[in-house]
Design a protein around this nucleic acid. Structure first.
Lengths: 338, 338
DNA sequence: AGCTGGCACTCGTATGCGCCGAGTGCCAGG
DNA sequence: CCTGGCACTCGGCGCATACGAGTGCCAGCT
């Protein structure tokens, strides 16, 4: 529908605007990009692009800037994901290889991503609901007090304190621990409920209450939504593009602190591959002038969580996408190794 | 040295400036505070205060603002910690009572503190080094792979994966677990090293290597400094006072992300009670125009970690100190209960 | 001795005005 | 369909001016 050259013009506008942060005019365009046509021609193209809603002018006599729709077209059709250079890849790997545990992996990832993209990085902890159980441990802290420790295949550890209705014998506890593990070790979280359903029946009547309490706590832990923690870094980068928008930065900071909001937004990105949400495509007011680039990552082939970047709509999409993709890939490798 | 009235003038200047965020002049002072003297007299007092370095004027013909030294005097001699009102106390308690585990306590505390003070809140996780061991658990995940789980009296759980030099029999592991717990359960972290020193000697020669590996990992976990995590919230509040300082907000955000910096600063505040660091008293450049109000908190009478608030030097010290103290007190109660 | 009213002075900020130039839209011609 | 030319728009910048809050100082009063 749009002629090839007009697409080139749009691409040039996006690239220039991202670079200079200033509205770009027809003359500058023809000079900086070898379009081979005169400014007047470009002006006509720009008028058409504006007609279609891909670009807009902030003031009557100023250059054009891309609209959300323009960025969308750019990302979908005009941009290539920019692969990381070899040194960058090495830096990523070196940086992540030093991690000692899951917390450390996540912490390093968020720092790395923030540094690479010079934007705000968001990393979701590997979600429990898609993981498998590695081990369940029960510790007797007091006669009627048990601590439940759940270890996942991603190395994550969750603990819960349980107050039992009746004292729990050390033998019964060991028994429960053994039976529980033989059933659920290596299984997916989603399968656990039916696997333990009839477990209380094998115990003495006086222990059944306690066993049920333990099991229901385990199930709670498995489904508890707020377990989907996330970690954020690089907020200082917000100030880079905030010189115009000290009024814009506040809602963004608020949104970033409201983990629920971010989790919902990340959750909405169904596509397991890379997803880009531009400006108003984000169903949250405070993030209407930001874009989110996210991608799933996981220890195996399967994605267990997401990570990404939040930045101004006026961001370097190819570079950001390249960095996000590369980091997700390496994190997946690290997780698979451990 | 300074006459009583001059101290009153300083107090009035601080209060007005904190309220209005604008330099305060002699006329406004006499009007808003019942000083009972004329502006001219106040002007003389102000000249004297400026001479002593307690206040300064940003421009030749402008009002005065307090200097760091002025705030210091205000905090030390002129301000009373403002106690929380009864409804505020109830709100604090209600908010914290809903917490389910340590993570939740910390998360809620940081939100609460940020909300109460409308500033940036910082909460340090209860430090391992001052806590006691509740339980040590060893899980055999593979023949030569053991997971160490350490549970503290504050409810904190640390885990470490250990690769042993030789396979570890299930019996030996259970044995080690039992002996280890009988020695260290209930003891302070600092005492653990000598308590386990001779432990390997009780084991068969072929197991000693593995036992030593486990023990040294345990000791590492105990001393590892970076375990002193902290959680930050309310960064959006930075924008409240950043309208003048979009250039100031960036280093602050950077400092906040550098947990090491904050931990060091918190650590420098030796006083177990409330400490206030004002402006340049903070030995970190990025925080030269902020003040930090912090206080220790703990489950028993003893402080195990710190929490506090980071805000502009121009902050409501009495109110902030009251909120920080109250929150620390309630958090201590919650921790003691669990 | 200390407080007060008066007064001249400073200086930062707000306001209004005019210029400049980038950028546009349109049109006639190639 | 592209191009060069041209008139027009309008935001930004520099400058000069006016305003007013606030100060320092001094002479006089209690």
């Amino acid at each position: 529908m749009l002629s090839e050259r007009r697409l080139q013009v749009l691409r040039a506008i996006v690239q220039d605007y991202v670079g200079t942060e200033e509205p770009v005019g027809s003359k500058a365009l023809t000079e900086r990009h070898g379009l081979g046509v005169s400014p007047a021609t470009v002006r006509n193209d720009m008028a058409a692009l504006e007609e279609e809603g891909y670009i807009a002018q902030p003031h009557t006599s100023a250059g054009r800037i891309p609209t959300d729709k323009g960025y969308r077209l750019f990302v979908d059709k005009l941009a290539e994901v920019k692969p990381m250079t070899a040194p960058e890849r090495r830096a990523i790997q070196n940086f992540l290889d030093g991690a000692v545990d899951l917390d450390d992996v996540v912490a390093r990832t968020v720092r790395l991503l923030a540094q690479l993209t010079r934007q705000v990085a968001v990393v979701q902890y590997p979600s429990l609901t898609r993981s498998t159980v590695r081990h369940v441990e029960l510790l007797s802290l007091a006669p009627a007090r048990v601590m439940l420790v759940l270890i996942t295949d991603t190395g994550r550890v969750e603990q819960r304190m349980i107050d039992c209705p009746a004292p729990f014998g050390e033998t019964s506890l060991a028994d429960l621990r053994a039976r529980l593990n033989s059933r659920v070790a290596g299984r997916r979280f989603t399968d656990v409920p039916q696997l333990v359903e009839d477990l209380p029946e094998g115990f003495d009547v006086e222990d059944r209450g306690a066993v049920s309490t333990v099991l229901s706590t385990l199930l709670e832990t498995l489904v508890e939504e707020n377990e989907e923690r996330l970690v954020i870094g690089g907020t200082a980068n917000l100030t880079r593009f905030a010189h115009d928008f000290p009024l814009t930065i506040r809602p963004v900071l608020e949104a970033l602190e409201e983990q629920v909001v971010l989790l919902r937004l990340l959750g909405e990105m169904q596509n397991p591959g890379m997803t880009v949400r531009i400006g108003h495509e984000n169903a949250y007011e405070g993030l209407n002038s930001t874009s989110i680039v996210s991608v799933g990552y996981g220890s195996g082939g399967e994605a267990v969580a997401k990570l990404g970047v939040v930045g101004p709509t006026r961001m370097d999409y190819p570079g950001t996408m390249g960095a996000v993709r590369a980091v997700a890939r390496y994190v997946g490798q690290i997780l698979a190794e451990s």
